[in-house]
Nucleic acid binder design. Structure first.
Lengths: 131, 131
DNA sequence: TATTTACCCACTGTGTCAATAGGTTATTAT
DNA sequence: ATAATAACCTATTGACACAGTGGGTAAATA
């Protein structure tokens, strides 16, 4: 299940895409447009900024801005940064302990394909298509 | 994310499918095969039993049994019973409050298609294929 | 009658989510 | 220089679900 964290991040990124790459957009505005607590968005943007997806400038006239053209962001990449992982089951999460019984597990192939499907679908959508 | 509840349920159902529809299989055995706490499985089976997916008999020689041929169970139906819902976002959950801004939401189509994909994929796999 | 098994209810520890709060640092407009 | 603006950082909170445990009751059979 994708939490508000990832869903908000996607909505904010769409907003930034619509503002263009010339101006910096302060969170105050984004928060109003999206009707999301500014404080909460701050925490989310910290992840996106740390991951290099957005560029930030302090002070008056500052704010956030996309780091590359909207066409080059995929929904999957944005969600993975904010959610940590998109794996549908714990044993497929990045950094999960290798399962001792993976070889004999009859359900693993189901989860494996589901995982590929989900990531593949979300990696096939760009920000530009949503803005 | 699919929790242990749903994953265990699926594994138990595969076990029951392998035992055939003639015999009743006690949870004691299933718990040992699957290395899962018997008590925990009890709670899961209660859901499956209440939903009519399995048949139960008390006492010596009793246990659980599939209610129909393994070909007629889909992975999706088993998971929906035990997990409650397979929706990837809260606003698409069964019984969720209708979103006031659904009409203008640019991300909703993404979640909608993802939801259809996930459910469609899991409804396309039968127990018989896994046993 | 004893044994086995499903069934029921309550409880608990752990962890994550979704925020909130209060402050500090950096940058710019005046 | 100073005030205003905005990102950044750390800590804390309440609510909730998950994963499992424990103890007992009811039903069926050997």
């Amino acid at each position: 299940m994708i939490s508000t964290r990832g869903r908000y991040a996607l909505r904010v990124m769409i907003d930034l895409a619509e503002q263009g790459r010339e101006t910096y957009t302060p969170l105050k505005e984004v928060a109003e447009w999206q009707r999301i607590s500014k404080k909460y968005i701050e925490a989310i943007m910290a992840s996106l900024s740390k991951a290099g997806l957005v560029d930030a400038v302090h002070g008056k006239g500052g704010g956030y801005r996309l780091n590359k053209p909207a066409e080059e962001y995929t929904v999957g990449e944005i969600l993975r940064v904010t959610e940590g992982d998109l794996a549908p089951v714990a044993c497929l999460e990045h950094g999960a302990a290798p399962c001792e019984y993976a070889g004999e597990c009859k359900t693993l192939p189901v989860w494996d394909k589901l995982n590929l499907m989900i990531n593949g679908y979300l990696d096939g959508i760009t920000l530009a298509e949503l803005a």
